[in-house]
């Protein structure tokens, strides 16, 4: 498997998990009921999760990339 795809999949997975955890933690702190029946609030919550997923996925990708770059240091480099 191409490593770039592996990193993207890992980053997306971490991003989705982080977004759910982060969004529910923020909602709990703001005392927003989890089980809302209000349509607008539901859509807003979904868009929050989607936005957080994107943000966390990008962050995770950068962190994974940085870790791999550090791990891959060696005396020989392709020119």
């Amino acid at each position: 498997m191409n490593q770039l795809w592996l990193w993207i999949v890992i980053s997306l997975a971490i991003g989705i998990i982080s977004a759910f955890v982060f969004t529910s933690a923020v909602n709990r702190m703001a005392e927003v009921p989890e089980d809302t029946t209000d349509n607008a609030a539901g859509i807003s919550k979904l868009s929050n999760i989607a936005l957080n997923t994107v943000v966390f996925s990008i962050l995770s990708f950068l962190i994974v990339w940085l870790i791999m770059a550090v791990l891959q240091r060696g005396p020989y480099a392709v020119m």
């Binding site: 770039l4 791990l71 060696g74």
Partner: peptide, 15 residues
Amino acid sequence: SSLHSFQYRFNHALE
């Protein structure tokens, strides 16, 4: 197939 992976593996082999 991947220069990035090659570089990592190459350095690993010659450690």
